[in-house]
Every structure is written in C-alpha cells, then in structure tokens.
C-alpha cells in the first residue's frame, strides 16, 4: 500500500490553474522531496493531501484512505509541520504540545509521556513552561516539529522545515528526520533547499507551473542531464581574470563566479581543461586548482523549471 497516492490532481482558483493532473505516489517508509519554484503548486498540493482544500479534479489517498471522503481517518495517520511555525505564542511549549495531542486524540497518559520525550529530543524540556513568545525562531521551529510528531504519525508532512534556521536547530531537525525515516515513518518534504533534498530524499519530484516536471531519485535525475557538467577552477588571487575572458574558452557555455572560484559549464570537460591551461599560459595567470563536477540536483532543477539564476534573484524564463 502506498503512503500517498495522488491521482490526476487538479485545482483551479477562478481563472488560475494551480495544479494540472498531478500524479505521483510515495511508498511507505520513503523520504520524498517535493521541489519547485514559488507559485509552482507545492502548497496547493500539500493543502489537498492534508484535506484542507479539495481538488477540482482527481483523488488523493493516504494509506488507502480517500482524503476527501474519509478525511478524518486519513488525517489520523499524519503529522503536519506547516511552513510557518504556527504555534500559540501566548501558551507555553507544554501547553502547545498538549493542545495538539488533544486535537489528535492522544490519550492523557500517552500525551504526557510523548510530550516529555519530544521536548527532550528537541532540547526544549528546560523551557517547557515558558510562554513561546520569547522563543527564538529555531526553538519555535523545533516545537512545531515536536507538535507534528505528538501523535506518532506514519506519515509526516514537512513544509520547508529548515528554512532560515540557526545551525543548531538545522542539525537537530535533520537528525530527527533521518531517525524518523529509519523507524519507517514516511516523510513528505517540500523544500527550497536543493542540497537538503539531495541528501535526505530517496526520491524527488520537481513541480513547475502546476505540473510534475520529473520524479526520480536525485542521482538518476542528475544522470538525465549529463550534458550539464562543470569545472571549478581557482586562479591565483593576484591574477586578474574576467568572466568575459573565460567565456571565450572553447566549449564553455556558461560561467558563474562562486566565491574565489569560477564554475565553467560545459559538455566537454577535457576540452575545457586544455582551454584553461592555454588561457593561463597566454595570459600569465596561475591556476591553483581545477575540479571537474557532474551535474547537481540544482542543475536539474534549473533545467526542468526553466529558471535562470544567472541574473540577480530568480526569474522565470518563458
């Protein structure tokens, strides 16, 4: 049985087609990443899968339960960590957890035991009786995750779990996600952090303009665009090197400056290495390091969503 089955999900808001025949399935115990630019349909998909919104067409099942017709039974299987840390800031961490437990029908004995475990796990036990309006962003996020786990969910929806967090919170949350996965909990993760998806997910779906552009494991997705290979090259800092000059090197299609290095995108890495050496020799600059790189998940994402990040910010290319 699948943990999630989305069958031809469509959602229309007036004239706007937010989702168009989205199909995917998530197997039990899998960590499934859901990537897409802003406005691609990620939030709408999560709202449908959690039963907050109904689809205009199509169906979604959670462990075989139809989310529209059997909403409550489907929701009992899941924990939800919303994008915003939506905790009650006038309540203490303990009160927040106990309230969520009551909403999810967790028995008094179990919720107190589970609440204590979770607060200890997330490093919040000492502050359990403090009102949460004094909590840092990371502490609020950790509490939100604890609230999502209070009912021992078989399926956890995580919407941007580590966005903008401090290092400590980031590490705790990533460890918990990994441990959850090891204990068989299915994780549905939406994130902007492509590297996070690359490291944490068994499979990734890339959604763009309301349609699924690709679904596969991160490694297999990278193999689909082997043509996007790159070379990272660092020159002696005293040697003036311009992007325009590197673009003249044969077989280089694009150059990005990453810190003290240049990333040269190419379909022919050996040819480019020769070209760089020629360039260094003729311009009397010293090459400090050269590394060849395969395509990253970010490259796949850019290729599939048609995003252009060469300019400042991110813009959509029609």
């Amino acid at each position: 049985m699948y943990a999630i089955e989305a069958l031809s999900l469509s959602k229309r808001f007036g004239d706007i087609q937010a989702l168009s025949h989205v199909d995917f399935s998530v197997t039990e115990g899998e960590t499934f990443g859901f990537l897409g630019p802003n406005g691609a349909g990620k939030t709408t998909t999560i709202r449908i899968l959690t039963g907050i919104t109904t689809p205009t067409e199509g169906t979604a099942r959670i462990f075989g339960r139809d989310i529209v017709r059997d909403t409550i039974a489907a929701r009992r299987q899941m924990g939800i960590v919303h994008e915003t840390s939506n905790i009650y800031t006038d309540l203490s961490a303990w009160q927040n957890l106990m309230f969520t437990a009551e909403l999810y029908h967790v028995s008094r004995k179990d919720r107190e035991k589970r609440g204590t475990e979770l607060l200890e796990l997330f490093g919040l036990f000492e502050r359990r009786h403090d009102k949460t309006n004094g909590f840092s962003k990371g502490m609020k996020r950790r509490l939100t995750l604890a609230m999502g786990l209070i009912n021992h969910p078989r399926l956890l929806f995580l919407d941007e779990p580590t966005s903008g967090l401090d290092v400590q919170s980031n590490l705790i949350i990533r460890d918990v996600i990994r441990e959850l996965n090891e204990t068989g909990v299915t994780v549905f993760l939406t994130t902007h952090n492509i590297e996070e998806a690359n490291l944490a997910c068994d499979r990734v779906a890339i959604i763009n303009r309301g349609q699924i552009a690709a679904i596969d494991s991160p490694e297999r997705l990278k193999h689909t665009i082997q043509s996007v290979q790159s070379i990272d090259v660092a020159f002696d800092p005293v040697s003036p090197v311009r992007i325009e000059d590197l673009l003249q090197v044969p077989h280089v299609s694009e150059v990005r400056k990453n810190g003290d290095k240049f990333r040269l995108i190419t379909e022919d890495p050996p040819g480019v290495i020769d070209g760089i050496m020629d360039y260094a020799s003729t311009h009397h600059v010293r090459v400090i390091s050269v590394n060849t790189l395969g395509p990253s998940l970010e490259d796949v994402f850019i290729r599939l969503t048609g995003l252009d990040i060469r300019t400042k910010g991110v813009k959509t290319v029609d």
């Binding site: 039963g51 409550i72 915003t84 939506n86 009650y88 999810y104």
Partner: peptide, 14 residues
C-alpha cells in the same frame, strides 16, 4: 494571521 487556524483545519476532527 498567525497560521494557527490551519492547525484546526488540518486536525483529524470534523
């Protein structure tokens, strides 16, 4: 505004 209402709407209750 605080998005806590979504908690109620997504809980396993009618």
């Amino acid at each position: 505004r605080m998005k806590t209402f979504d908690r109620l709407l997504s809980a396993p209750i009618s």
